[in-house]
Design a binder for these strands. Structure first.
Lengths: 144, 144
DNA sequence: TTTATCTGTAACAACATTGATTACATGTAA
DNA sequence: TTACATGTAATCAATGTTGTTACAGATAAA
């Protein structure tokens, strides 16, 4: 099972808004680049807006970044699109049997281990900004 | 979205096999402790067996660990129960538009970042063994 | 004010995965 | 032979994802 591609698409959206900042980045334009439906993009834009990452207004075409590129980390996007809940990357089975020494302790024993693993993953995401992503694409395109 | 509880149940199974090593750990016994169906347990036991973590034989009740407790890491269990594929904790949208500078590069740019995050998470799992889990439960039960 | 165009959002379908359940074939030992 | 265990397939309900359609509401321009 994989984490929803909303995360990757969210990064795509923000990156394209930046690289197209001299133009109008509408949901249709984004949908074409991502290769999906404009309604899907608008739903994601709603999440990014709610998280304070972009500015977008009903009736007005286009979206703009609400923060500096270097102030937006992949973790911000990850949280914005709501793909993984806090402490819930891994799920633990409910209601193990309380009469068993393992059953009555397994959840409390496992939980901090799973949380530590999740936090390690999230720490990597915190250390990458959209600026890094944009620069990497610029390098690949030789427009640096 | 969460990683399947097969992972947590796999840990539960192995831990209980160890703590019940003087008895017979059948799928029914395990199912009772986990609070699920014996067939679910047998399916998981099949995965753990295939990964070389336990020994179990058709027609013979009970399972035994195939390795030392300290030689089984959470990562081994995680791989055994097949909850996350290599490089696929995060999914990336397919077929972005090749005519767009972002569309034609986003996958290659994002992939190593996602992989790094996944590896950081897995590294934590590699550093915890079943022995740690069993000891923690023993401590909680005051049977240390 | 009307019209065109955009965002915001809800409803629905198609699909995949999970976990539970049932059933039964197969293997083992008494 | 019998009792009981594992191995495994089929099915189902519940859930989440993604795509699609439709339409309400906001805005700007004619």
């Amino acid at each position: 099972m994989s984490i929803s591609s909303r995360f990757a698409v969210g990064i795509h959206i923000l990156t394209l808004i930046e690289l197209n900042k001299d133009g109008v980045t509408s949901s249709e334009f984004l949908a074409s680049s991502v290769n999906t439906n404009p309604a899907v993009i608008r739903k994601l834009m709603g999440m990014l807006k709610k998280a304070g990452l972009i500015e977008v207004h009903p009736g007005i075409a286009g979206a703009r970044l609400a923060k500096e590129l270097s102030d937006i980390t992949l973790f911000d996007v990850y949280k914005a699109v709501n793909v993984v809940q806090e402490k819930e990357l891994f799920s633990i089975h409910e209601s193990p049997h309380p009469d068993c020494p393992v059953g009555r302790n397994i959840q409390n024993t496992i939980e901090p281990l799973f949380t530590a693993a999740q936090l390690a993953m999230e720490k990597v995401l915190r250390n990458v900004t959209l600026e890094d992503v944009v620069k990497d694409i610029a390098t690949k395109e030789n427009i640096c």
